[in-house]
Amino acid sequence: MNIFRFLGDLSHLASIFILIHKIQTTRSCRGISFKTQAVYVAVFVTRYLDLFTTFVSVYNTSMKIFFIASSCYILYLMKVRFRPTNDPSIDTFRVEYLVGPCAVLALIFNYGYSVTEVLWSLSIFLESVAILPQLFMLQRTGEAETITTHYLAALGAYRALYIPNWIYRYFSEGYVDPISVTAGLVQTGLYLDFFYVYFTKVLQGQKFELPA
């Protein structure tokens, strides 16, 4: 564990708390893509299958449980508790276009041909593009509530912070995980446009609005 990874994980935790806070205080999941949130459940469940077989640390296990539980809770908030505020008609990104290619990639690139390793690989590839339905929705509506942009910024910062973590681990432990690094770079890259608007507008006190 190093400071970059720890801050990345904290940022990931923060993003989830921000999202839950947004939904509960506004009593609405407007502006949140259900598809993105559903993909996150799939990401956590497929990645943390080792929860019962591999023990890394109490930290690791608790975080895994938290990520699975909180992502399921968010789906519950969206589909049951605040269902009327969820508008599927603007959440139109075709998720099957993400899952298919990721499944093929996972079958080609993995660290071993076992069910758990291929699913782990799938979860890494899927996570890298999971935000696309959300960004697509943002693009389509052209604006976002400020709290939603804080959620996205924290989520983007999480993967961005993993990059210095991998550089650090390469030099300190000789550790390299090419699948995570490649997917992580792609994932961070997807946020660049968003970050630009976030830093130049939202953090200057303006509303998040995309040029028409």
Binding site: R5, D9, H12, R47, D50, T54, V56, N60, M63, K64, F67, Y111, G112, S114, E117, W120, Y162, N165, Y175, V176, D177, S180
Partner: peptide, 10 residues
């Protein structure tokens, strides 16, 4: 490397 198959990152 990852020969051990243990993924210690989240």
């Amino acid at each position: 490397d990852l020969d051990s198959g243990i993924h210690d990152e989240l």
